[in-house]
């Protein structure tokens, strides 16, 4: 016996949450894709920028509170994400790259950088006797905007995440199509040697890429922290979904964002229907992301949604 009212409102609730979480996955995957395309690094340390930014956002929100605190938290997270990102490149990846390190070396190095960042955070909390787990909602209220049928609720965090994804996507589109640096980034991404010969300052492009990717990750970190409690492993635990979205998007800029949203929606909706109609435990829901990843790698290793090609070709 299926209660269609529950299915309807449950679907709406899953749509809200899927859109929200999907926007976060999309933003995170976008930053990862930026780094991968321009520098050829599958950056495992990327997840830690998100964590650092979330902690910074908490500190800012706790210090100021209210609307000012919310804005400050978003800005601080973006700046901290960008700085940690740039710093990790300048300290580890760039020196390796200049010595001619290949992709595998850089990948392993990124794991090392990730470990250093994660355990430094744990070390700092232990030394300073600071709380290990922070929760932005304890200092910044996340109110309900509206509810549907008693089951679905749309909160500030949902609005913030979805709005951010839209704004970031628009800004990126503007950057890639209307600005010199954006075009230089795309040129470097498609052929670094040619870009260099054409007179593009690949070092400047590299720096901007890391800053931008870190900033997007930082913003996503704030949004994640606004919705969920954060501990030093939060970013790391999200990494599977970030990579899944980036790979589904074929490591293309728009593809990553759209794939993230699709992944979030698929996980929420499929998980909900499997349980409601077939009684399959929700404990299996992480399998959806993994399955999507494996299927894409098996049948469409170039990615399912390669959006940039069509969207951009006309403007070049």
């Amino acid at each position: 016996m299926v209660d269609w009212g529950i299915i309807l409102y449950g679907t709406i609730s899953s749509l809200f949450d899927g859109l929200m979480v999907g926007s976060l996955y999309g933003l995170m995957a976008l930053g990862l894709t930026l780094i991968f395309r321009v520098t050829r690094i599958a950056n495992f340390a990327y997840a830690e920028y998100i964590t650092y930014a979330a902690y910074a956002a908490y500190a800012a929100a706790a210090a100021l509170g209210g609307v000012v605190g919310a804005v400050a938290a978003a800005v601080t997270a973006t700046v901290v994400g960008a700085l940690v990102s740039l710093l990790s490149d300048e300290a580890a990846f760039k020196p390796l790259w200049l010595r001619g390190a290949d992709s595998l070396t850089l990948l392993v190095a990124s794991m090392g950088v990730g470990f250093i960042l994660r355990y430094s955070l744990l070390g700092v909390t232990a030394l300073g006797n600071l709380p290990v787990q922070v929760n932005i909602q304890s200092v910044l209220s996340n109110n309900v905007l509206f509810t549907v049928g008693g089951l679905a609720s749309f909160q500030y965090a949902h609005a913030a995440a979805i709005l951010s994804a839209v704004v970031v996507a628009s800004l990126m589109h503007w950057l890639f199509t209307r600005t010199r640096i954006g075009k230089a980034m795309r040129a470097t991404a498609s052929n670094p040697t040619l870009a260099r010969i054409s007179g593009i300052n690949v070092y400047a492009v590299r720096r901007v890429t890391w800053l931008l990717a870190g900033a997007i990750g930082g913003l996503a970190g704030f949004l994640y922290g606004y919705y969920n409690p954060v501990n030093p492993e939060s970013g790391w635990q999200t990494l599977l979904w970030i990579f899944a979205a980036a790979i589904m998007g074929g490591f293309t800029f728009y593809g990553a964002l759209v794939s993230g949203i699709i992944l979030g929606l698929a996980e929420a909706l499929i998980g909900f229907y499997l349980y409601q109609f077939f009684g399959i435990s929700t404990a299996y829901s992480p399998v959806i992301a993994l399955l999507a990843l494996v299927l894409v790698l098996l049948f469409r290793p170039e990615g399912v949604i390669r959006l940039e090609a069509h969207a951009l070709r006309r403007r070049v």
């Binding site: 449950g10 899953s14 976060l24 492993e233 909900f272 349980y275 435990s281 929700t282 829901s285």
Partner: peptide
Amino acid sequence: ILYQPDKPDLSAEVTQLAA
């Protein structure tokens, strides 16, 4: 309703609970 504790977001599980 069982959930994976290390999943980054548990909204879907809470929706199941509400349903």
